[in-house]
Design a protein around this nucleic acid. Structure first.
Length: 230
DNA sequence: GCGACAG
DNA sequence: ATCTTGTCGC
């Protein structure tokens, strides 16, 4: 595959997000069955600059047993600097390559970052979902909005809100995946509703704070970016 | 002008 | 994201 009209400037990137945000669907299809879930993540060598060497990872899990069905690691480079809000333009290319090489087409994509919990309501998870047509969600370690601490028990949630045209907008949820741990921040990417998104994340995180998808993808990421790879 | 700001 | 060992605690 290839990306059509991929922006090179900040202005073009923002314009593209403004144009694509209208395509996002925040509801689940009646027949949405999630049997396989993919965790996507990117690792870096030299950060901050533009042409950094990166490693894209796609790990596919059996949603029910959490068994790993496939793992793909792709090396590449990025030509976009890290800018909060334009994060997707840095990771999308290599992530799509990794996803393409997977032998199993996942029913759900779990991105390391935000979905619609984004200044223009179009974070990385939305980019991935709209581009592929596959339902997607964003699971971030840090919030992109205001929220009150959720209850202390696993499964507790609280709304994450951001300023919108009509006042406050609920853009995601702070979700406690384990008793007493810092919550993760879940937001819809595409073709799935927030409740379902949280349910899936809880199922993916039976033991640790972060879902197995991001944990495994993260491990593979540095296993190929730090030691003696490339 | 100042502080915030996913990975 | 990344630099990075041992250590405090359940």
């Amino acid at each position: 595959m290839s990306l059509v009209e991929w922006p090179r400037t900040v202005d073009d990137a923002i314009a593209l997000q403004e144009r694509l945000r209208t395509q996002v669907i925040t509801t689940s299809a009646p027949d949405l069955h999630i049997d396989t879930v993919a965790g996507l993540d990117v690792g870096y060598r030299d950060t901050g600059l533009c042409n950094d060497s990166v490693v894209g990872v796609c790990v596919v899990f059996d949603a029910k047993t959490l068994a790993v069905l496939d793992e793909v690691v792709v090396e590449g480079t990025t030509d976009f600097p890290y800018i909060a809000g334009l994060f997707a333009f840095r990771e999308m290319p290599v992530l799509l390559q990794a996803l393409d090489r997977a032998t199993v087409t996942p029913d759900l994509l779990v991105a390391d970052g935000q979905g619609i919990a984004h200044p223009r309501r179009f974070g990385l998870a939305c980019h991935l979902g709209v581009h592929t047509g596959i339902p997607s969600i964003g699971v971030a370690k840090n919030p992109m909005g205001r929220f009150d601490p959720p209850g202390t028990k696993r499964g507790s949630t609280s709304d994450v809100v951001m300023d919108g045209a009509d006042g406050d907008e609920v853009v995601g949820r702070a979700l406690r995946t384990q008793d007493g741990v810092k919550p993760v921040f879940v937001s819809v990417g595409h073709k799935i509703d927030l409740d379902r998104a949280c349910t899936e994340v809880l199922r993916l995180a039976p033991r640790y704070r972060l879902p197995e998808t991001t944990r495994r993808a993260d491990t593979l990421t540095r296993q190929s970016a730090s030691p003696a790879g490339s």
